[in-house]
């Protein structure tokens, strides 16, 4: 997190660079079935973020040493396509995507009824096609929809969203400039039906009051995004 930089992310009227007020979510649209050969798939477009998630399985887990006798293992990969950012990303191993894959797997394992599929594997592939900010949140949200689209039983879907702080103002659902020049980032993974959490990260600097405000923004945003997730799965009006 840098200082204020020379970018003014919010004007005197409280309007952000993308025209939102501080408590608004970027436009979100979700569609399913975008990877026709997969067992379930979803695409989320969220601001400029464009993310595809595909689910394969449950299938036989191999090699056998990765099998669990009492449950399925979730094999989750988060990856950014080489052309997803301003500067090209070199394909291959990357510590950041490894960490995001790990915390995403752990979030999804908290809701998938893995005990129904002992000794099997469920593959979840998350590909960021275009990145703005909050790609890990887009990935977790898309993966939840893809799992539901594949018919994998879950206690709830995970909605993930990140609020934070820029110019000492707490804002909902950080965009690229706010992520780059802001002072705090609080991504959370929320179960929309209970308000419980399965994913939590934070970096930056927040006072206890600011932390609560960002937390509340995430909870409210989760409900907005959840509506779109359900619409994408069940059909119906926007």
């Amino acid at each position: 997190m840098g200082g204020y930089g020379d970018v003014q992310c919010i004007d005197e009227n409280g309007i952000r660079l993308d025209g939102r007020t501080k408590d608004e979510v970027r436009p979100v649209s979700i569609e399913t079935g975008v990877v026709p050969v997969a067992d379930g798939s979803a695409r989320i477009r969220w601001g400029l973020n464009d993310c595809i998630a595909a689910v394969y399985g449950p299938m036989e887990a191999h090699p056998r040493k990765i099998q669990r006798q009492d449950r399925a293992v979730l094999d989750v990969r988060y990856n950014m396509a080489p052309f997803s950012t301003t500067d090209r990303i070199r394909p291959g191993f990357n510590r950041r995507s490894r960490e995001i894959s790990k915390v995403t797997a752990e979030a999804l394992e908290s809701v998938v009824l893995t005990e129904l599929y002992p000794r099997s594997k469920i593959r979840v592939e998350i590909e960021i096609i275009c990145a703005e900010a909050g790609t890990r949140c887009a990935g977790i949200t898309a993966a939840s929809v893809a799992l539901a689209h594949a018919g994998i039983p879950m206690t709830d879907m995970v909605v993930s969203v990140a609020s934070g702080k820029v110019h000492d103002i707490v804002v909902c659902d950080l965009n690229k400039e706010e992520d780059n020049y802001g002072e705090a980032d609080l991504p959370m993974g929320i179960l929309p039906n209970t308000g419980e959490l399965v994913f939590l990260q934070m970096d930056g600097d927040l006072s206890p009051e600011q932390f609560q405000e960002a937390w509340d923004y995430n909870m409210e945003a989760a409900q907005v995004i959840h509506k779109e997730m359900v619409r994408a799965l069940k059909g119906g009006d926007e």
């Binding site: 050969v37 052309f83 997803s84 950012t85 301003t86 096609i129 275009c130």
Partner: peptide, 25 residues
Amino acid sequence: CLPRAEGSARVRMGDTIVLAGVKFQ
């Protein structure tokens, strides 16, 4: 179709779908 690429295309042939993106260095 890819806003972060300097040139891009998406091709669909049946259920085969691919993307191509051009970047410069």
